[in-house]
Amino acid sequence: MKTGFKLSRRRFLTSAGVAASTLPLAGCDALDGLLSGDSAVRATMASANGLTYRVQRLLIGADTLAPEFSASEIRQGQRPNGSTDPNDEAYLALRADAFSTYRLQVHGLVEQPASYSLQELRNMPARNQITRHDCVEGWSCIAKWSGVPLSRLLDEVKVKPEARFVVFHCFDSLNMGGAGQPGYYESIDLIDARHPQTILAYGCNDATLTVANGAPLRVRIERQLGYKMAKYIRSIELASTLAPFGRGKGGFWEDFGYDWYAGI
């Protein structure tokens, strides 16, 4: 997740014949119109993300692990980013109760929809991993994460064959939504969903996950960037397409122009 994102200004080129060689003199706003929002040029360039996704999926085994580190490499607390203190009513009510009434819903294209309390998730076999969190902004932070592998829940609810994506719905709206607006959401393919290091984390650095870092649950997707790792998870939905969610790009930041695949 990230902050400080400024919505792109709309600019239109009055003349199309701007030679690339004059750009350093003319200033780089000459290309802004071509690069903004929903321009065809930008969409063409963004399709390279699909190429990156396919090549990396070919190159990397489905279960190949992200590097794990030793305890001595935890040199600081996990740096919170994005929303760090959601003020949505449903969330505040759960938080006031230390999440004792929280239930994670798993629904959508599954044979047996289910819901889990935090205690039930904690009682399942846990995975601990010391991994590096890479933010799309460029920084990294090493922390220990504890949680239940997502694959276990997927096995329990029995994913239908037509499901292609796991969608995480969150409590936070990043203060950009307002009434009726969709909040933070994210989605991943089933390869990452079933990856051994993909866990629903309830603990960080041997302590209960803090509100700043996504309590009660945040997902860890260790082979992708931080904005994929949704915090404050309300429910998990199995889906065959991403079109119905938000603006259809597969995630909160994706709807603002970020690549859906964040393995790079």
Partner: peptide, 21 residues
């Protein structure tokens, strides 16, 4: 500064799209 970046305004998402293309 703005004259040294694409797009000229702050837009990490588009910067990444251009960069990886």
């Amino acid at each position: 500064p703005a004259w040294a970046t694409l797009p000229s305004y702050q837009d990490l998402a588009t910067g990444r799209v251009i960069h990886f293309f």
